[in-house]
Design a binder for these strands. Sequence first.
DNA 1: GGTCAAGCGGACTCCTCGATCCGCTTCGTC
DNA 2: GACGAAGCGGATCGAGGAGTCCGCTTGACC
Lengths: 215, 215
Amino acid sequence: MTELSQRPLRSDAERNRRLVLEAAAQAFAEKGLDVGMADIARRAGVGNATVFRRFPSKDALVKAIFEDRIAEAIATAQEAAALADPWAAFVQCLERYSELQARDRGFFEASDQVLMEHPELMSLHRRVLDAVDPLVERAKQAGALRDDVTTLDVLGLTKAAVACVLPSPDLRADGWRRPLALMLDGLRPAAATPLPIPATSYEEVEQAMGVKASG
Amino acid sequence: MTELSQRPLRSDAERNRRLVLEAAAQAFAEKGLDVGMADIARRAGVGNATVFRRFPSKDALVKAIFEDRIAEAIATAQEAAALADPWAAFVQCLERYSELQARDRGFFEASDQVLMEHPELMSLHRRVLDAVDPLVERAKQAGALRDDVTTLDVLGLTKAAVACVLPSPDLRADGWRRPLALMLDGLRPAAATPLPIPATSYEEVEQAMGVKASG
DNA sequence: GGTCAAGCGGACTCCTCGATCCGCTTCGTC
DNA sequence: GACGAAGCGGATCGAGGAGTCCGCTTGACC
């Protein structure tokens, strides 16, 4: 993106690039975004300069991996959409998305942090939203999902479910299933009581994230 | 605690101690636990050495403030217990606890982080649990709250509600009300469907947090 | 196989942040 | 008001992390 020429990398450079990406993905997933670049370089088996040669900054590396995860998230939403039952599809989508965040601590942290500091990545987040939206609409149409929740609400709940369980190797990794199930019970039309405050629109989020409105 | 003698502080020292505590509370609340000690000292209008003279480490300062917040949380639970209606009391307790976390970013982060790194503070957390427990039991007895959730589940949900809204000054500060309401709808007996995994016991949490079991 | 730009990695710089040192100041007491 | 201990804060240290430099190596192409 920042490089002007598209000349392909030398084979060893390309190999190292992939090693770095894999090492970084693993490191971020395990320890979160706070791992040092030196740690990542060590895991990849390369010198730290090599990391910086491919990714001009830590931010760039985080962004690269974040984009991968977003793509994964979108893929799971599309997979879920293939299910015949609207509610089952909706549930599977949320479960997969929760699992993705629970398994990858970096991704979990990034969804807040990266968006806060890199408004240009809002478009990626938007694409997840667009991928999940049809599932939400279909579930609503089928009368399986209450009408007064937005896709943004629903995505937030996956984060919520993951956030409320402690990430300890001594506790089960799918602890999010329990809070998520509680939330799903609250999402059924029969359970609905009026919500206390209006939904936040996507435009409000964009504005709050620093996407400057014109004028 | 670490000081042996209980000789009272000199008046200026006592005043500075309070200034530091107030500054730290404010700083942590606004920016989270990552604020620097220098920043806190500046806010308090004292030199950084003064901060360290009263609190031997940043950890100690965080712990001191964490203990204050825990006391607040317990107080709100007890306040809520005074309400006649079991469900209303339960809801108010969760709302106040959510608000406390939403208003104080440091407290929000601390509930994870401090406990992870300071198992000795588990007892404080336990006291919150014990304060909320009667409210949960009463709501269950009254048939207002589903039977298969634990107090630990319920406390987790407050964290969840706060976690899923972005902490931006441009978005409403009580955004947690909406997810919390959804969760409350899922907590009513009528909404209940079987939970997918068993509850985590408090003992499991203690063990995972590093409270070493005997033997 | 020879050439050379591309690539490499470890040492290095710079900076932030927690924590300490030390000469000066202030409170409390007589 | 004199005195000593307690307290003060700016200067400083040390660890750790992001990012750079530079002499050596290696892959690509003839």
